[in-house]
Amino acid sequence: MCQLKCHVNKDPEHIEVHICFQYKCYRDCDRINDNCVENHTCKKQYFEECELCPKIVAKTRSCGHHFKQFVCSKNVEEIECDRSCKRKLICGHKCPSKYCEPCGSCPFPKKKMSSCSHMVEVKCSEEPTPSKCSGKCPKLLPYTLILTNAKRLALQTARSWCMGTH
């Protein structure tokens, strides 16, 4: 309760102080700063409006990114986390995502052996299938043509149209 005699009978609890400015209480404010999560008290006088909490504190984002000096009244989740991820993917490559993002699958290119016996460059997390192969097929057709996958697909499509199996 305010000890000043200027308003002892009218609003001694300072309920109306920021609504009605007919008097000014010069007592040090003991209210909590606006948007304060750590209960820091306002450093103004009671008749003045409290501000957003200006105290510098340590905060941690939900992703685990830790900030040593951060304004108490600010939401740490609103700050864009641009720190690179330091985790390793299952394949051993370094994760290319941001620290606050999930790692996901490996996007780095890697040469792998396809079931058609050709080396195929695919994403590290992908399987090397013959459909991703651009090498010449070693299989001989009745008329001994060596075909690329694209030509083989065109020939298979043409045969299915001719046989009515499309």
Rank of each mutant, 00 (worst) to 15 (best):
Q3H: 13
Q3Y: 13
L4S: 10
N9H: 09
K10I: 13
F21G: 05
Y26W: 08
R27N: 03
C29A: 04
C29D: 02
D34T: 12
C36N: 09
N39G: 05
H40V: 12
T41P: 11
Q45M: 03
Q45E: 05
F47Y: 08
E48I: 00
E49D: 00
C50I: 01
E51W: 00
V57Y: 05
V57E: 03
A58N: 14
C63F: 14
F70A: 12
V71K: 11
K74W: 08
N75R: 07
E77S: 09
I79F: 06
I79V: 12
C81I: 01
C81D: 11
C81M: 07
D82W: 00
D82V: 01
L89P: 03
H93A: 10
H93Y: 14
P96H: 10
S97T: 06
Y99M: 09
M113S: 12
S114K: 12
S115L: 11
C116R: 10
S117T: 15
M119C: 10
V120F: 15
V122D: 15
S125C: 15
E126D: 15
E126W: 14
P130E: 14
S131I: 11
K132T: 11
L140M: 02
L141G: 02
L141V: 02
P142S: 07
Y143T: 10
L145V: 06
A150P: 04
A150M: 03
A150Y: 05
L153S: 08
A154M: 03
Q156A: 05
A158K: 13
S160N: 03
W161P: 00
W161K: 07
C162F: 02
G164D: 01
T165H: 07
T165Y: 01
